[in-house]
């Protein structure tokens, strides 16, 4: 079917489709468009925005389940401004997010480029590279617990054998604890990103490379001039998803450090979780999550804007 129209593909018909649309009745056209959108958006918005509206409602109330909410105006918001632990947790989350996002994207892209080369047994490697994202985050974190634990872990058993006599108590040291969280997060993140980048790489039309070769471009040139721009939309996806996923990290922290030592790995959502469920301040928890929300929205929007410009 595609080859049937191949001669037309190169036609300089920039927006023939748009022109065709113009001829049609616009209103009727939108109706058709909304048919594409309605089923998905109806389900998605019902089960996302109805709860979000409720979360907004909760944020203006003192809520101690199972009692009825008591309206307290902007009380929760005022409390939030002065809550140093929350801001600390936001800072920690930011560090974690930047760390695990950049490491996860970089590693993911490198491995995808590697896998995009022709060699035997590629499929085997591909499947196993996906492993870290297959298992739930709780179980993955448990695995690393048995590696990094300072009393029972295998790392501190092996290190003295190779001459490092006093290895640190990894998860009890503020620096190493955060480092390990970032490592585990980007380990999972990279595995998640690899197939996406790979799909993007596979998607770059081979004729582009061939055309570039005729123009005498070398490998590096081809990568920067063709590969990167071609996979830009999909990279934006990876970036945004990494930010969102990293911002919502809880399980890894719960299993490995429990927010310690001295709150140095307390991430925002863990704090929100603690306040809303452990302490039953559901209203305050709602307020905090509403604060994380615009933060993510701005980051996402910036990402989309930047990618548009560079594209």
């Amino acid at each position: 079917m595609i080859s049937k129209h191949k001669s037309a593909v190169y036609m300089d018909g920039k927006s023939l489709l748009e022109e065709k649309i113009k001829k049609k009745n616009r209103r009727k056209d939108y109706l058709g468009t909304y048919l594409f959108l309605t089923p998905a958006l109806l389900l998605l918005f019902t089960f996302s925005f109805v709860p979000i509206i409720y979360v907004v409602y909760l944020s203006f109330h003192r809520v101690r389940l199972p009692d009825d909410p008591i309206f307290i105006g902007i009380g929760n918001y005022a409390q939030l401004m002065g809550d140093s632990v929350f801001w600390r947790s936001m800072g920690n989350t930011l560090i974690y997010t930047l760390g695990s996002m950049s490491l996860g994207l970089f590693a993911g892209l490198c491995v995808a480029v590697l896998l995009n080369r022709a060699f035997k047994g590629k499929r085997f490697f591909k499947v196993f590279y996906f492993l870290p994202s297959v298992t739930s985050d709780v179980v993955s974190a448990m695995i690393f617990l048995w590696i990094f634990d300072h009393n029972l872990g295998i790392l501190n058993y092996l290190l003295p054998k190779v001459g490092l006599v006093e290895p640190p108590a990894w998860l009890l040291d503020p620096f190493w604890a955060m480092f390990i969280l970032i490592f585990v997060g980007s380990w999972r993140g990279a595995a998640y990103n690899i197939p996406i980048f790979l799909a993007g790489l596979e998607g770059v039309p081979k004729s582009y490379y061939e055309a570039a070769e005729i123009d005498g471009a070398n490998g590096w040139h081809k990568f920067w001039r063709i590969t990167i721009p071609s996979i830009m939309p999909i990279s934006v996806y990876c970036m945004v998803m990494s930010i969102i996923a990293s911002f919502q990290v809880v399980a890894i922290v719960d299993v490995l450090t429990d927010g310690g030592p001295d709150n140095s790995t307390l991430v925002a959502l863990k704090y929100v979780w603690q306040q809303s469920f452990q302490f039953n301040y559901v209203g305050y928890g709602a307020t905090m999550s509403l604060f994380i929300f615009p933060f993510l929205l701005v980051m996402t929007w910036l990402n989309l804007k930047l990618s548009k410009r560079s594209g």
Partner: peptide, 21 residues
């Protein structure tokens, strides 16, 4: 943007309203 926004509310906090829903 609204679609993107749906991904950003932490799932844990939607549990209480979603349960009622």
């Amino acid at each position: 943007l609204a679609v993107l926004a749906t991904m950003m509310i932490p799932p844990g906090l939607m549990i209480v309203p979603l349960f009622s829903l």
